[in-house]
Simulated assay, not measured.
Amino acid sequence: MTSEFTLIHRHFDRAARHSTLAVGDDAALMQPRAGMQLAVSTDMLVAGTHFFADADPRALGWKTLAVNVSDLAAMGAEPRWALLAISLPAADENWIAAFAGGLFECAGRYGVDLVGGDTTRGPLTMTVTIIGELPEGEAITRAGGRSGDDVWISGTPGLAALGLAALKGGASIAGEARERCLAALHRPQPRVALGIGLRGIASAMIDVSDGLLGDLGHILERSGAGARLELAALPLAALREAGADEALARRCLLAGGDDYELLFTAPPHVRDAVLALGQRLQLPLHRLGALDAERGALLLCEADGRCQPAARRGYDHFA
């Protein structure tokens, strides 16, 4: 039987770029660059809750790291180091090799060193602690939004939720559209370059993991604000093209999770800078509405000015 330490050495011990000492000792040794502060986040993925137990291991390896990289992107930080704790029901070498391949593919894409972690036998669970850097005082938090700020979102939100609906039999999509939705679900693309580019521009930011409305609610809570979203401004075109009707498209975009797009606020006077950044990154950025002074209120507004409170917020593990 393959030992725990053999598995670690064989599949997870890779050359490090940013670390004095990485995998193989009791602790890693890392040196932040001068003038930088650390941003640290932890996220857990559990079989049956965050992914299907029979998920493709290479895609799962990518997603395990990508969702953590996205947390740093949401702060405007550059990812540097990660630690992986993984619980495995069995030492399946082929599965582990594929999982590690996907994880290190993501690590290579975003410049992350895997510097340690732990393995044990148990239900399939992955926990990553990720550490990044950003210049002191330049972190974009959830608490900076102010009444009058624009609300923006990146990319094509809702595709991942539509892909999940298709897997569960709640949506009928096929061909290239289905593959695009499943790619969004299984291989999210953290918006690191956008997060870095929004330093000094965005007033508040979060990544969309539990649904646009729910995650915007976190910004509203921390910023002490409300928001009005314009239904006509919702970027539904890609969802419609994939075969979703209007109701399903809105539900996927507003209440679906797993997008890992960046949802951010910014003062109106920087709209040109926001749009220029999107053009430079070749990434669509959509203005959805604006914050207002009514703390916690989240309204969805028709083109004729009629508004109603948002009924659904987002995913909650314990709701």
Rank of each mutant, 00 (worst) to 15 (best):
S3C: 01
T6G: 06
R10C: 01
D13H: 09
H18Y: 06
L21E: 08
A22D: 02
D25M: 10
A27T: 07
Q31I: 12
A34W: 08
G35H: 11
M36N: 15
L38P: 06
L38H: 05
G48H: 09
T49K: 14
H50A: 13
F52H: 10
A53R: 15
A53C: 10
R58L: 04
A59H: 13
L60K: 07
W62V: 12
W62D: 10
W62Y: 14
T64N: 11
V69D: 08
L72Q: 07
L72R: 06
A74R: 00
M75Y: 07
G76H: 04
A77P: 12
E78T: 15
W81Q: 11
L83W: 10
L83Y: 06
L83R: 14
L84S: 08
A85N: 10
A91W: 13
D92T: 09
N94T: 14
N94S: 12
L103W: 07
L103M: 14
L103Q: 07
F104S: 04
E105P: 12
A107S: 14
G108H: 05
G108Q: 08
V115D: 04
T119G: 09
T119S: 08
P123F: 09
V128W: 02
I131W: 01
E138G: 05
A139F: 00
A139W: 01
I140E: 02
T141W: 14
G148S: 10
G148D: 10
G155V: 00
G163A: 08
A165K: 09
K168M: 09
A171S: 12
G175E: 07
E176G: 03
R178W: 02
R180S: 14
Q189E: 15
V192I: 14
A193E: 10
L194D: 07
G195V: 10
L198G: 11
I201K: 00
S203T: 15
A204D: 09
D215K: 11
H218G: 00
G224V: 13
A232Y: 05
L239K: 10
E246W: 01
A249P: 05
A249V: 07
R250K: 15
R251M: 11
C252F: 04
L253S: 03
L254R: 05
A255T: 15
D258H: 15
D259Y: 01
D259L: 02
E261G: 09
L262F: 06
T265S: 15
V270F: 03
R271A: 13
D272I: 06
D272K: 13
D272A: 15
A273S: 14
A276G: 04
L277Y: 09
G278K: 04
Q279I: 01
Q279H: 09
Q279Y: 01
L285H: 01
H286E: 02
H286Y: 06
L300Y: 15
E302W: 03
A303R: 13
R306N: 05
P309E: 07
R312A: 11
R313E: 06
R313K: 07
R313D: 03
G314E: 07
Y315R: 11
H317Y: 08
H317G: 02
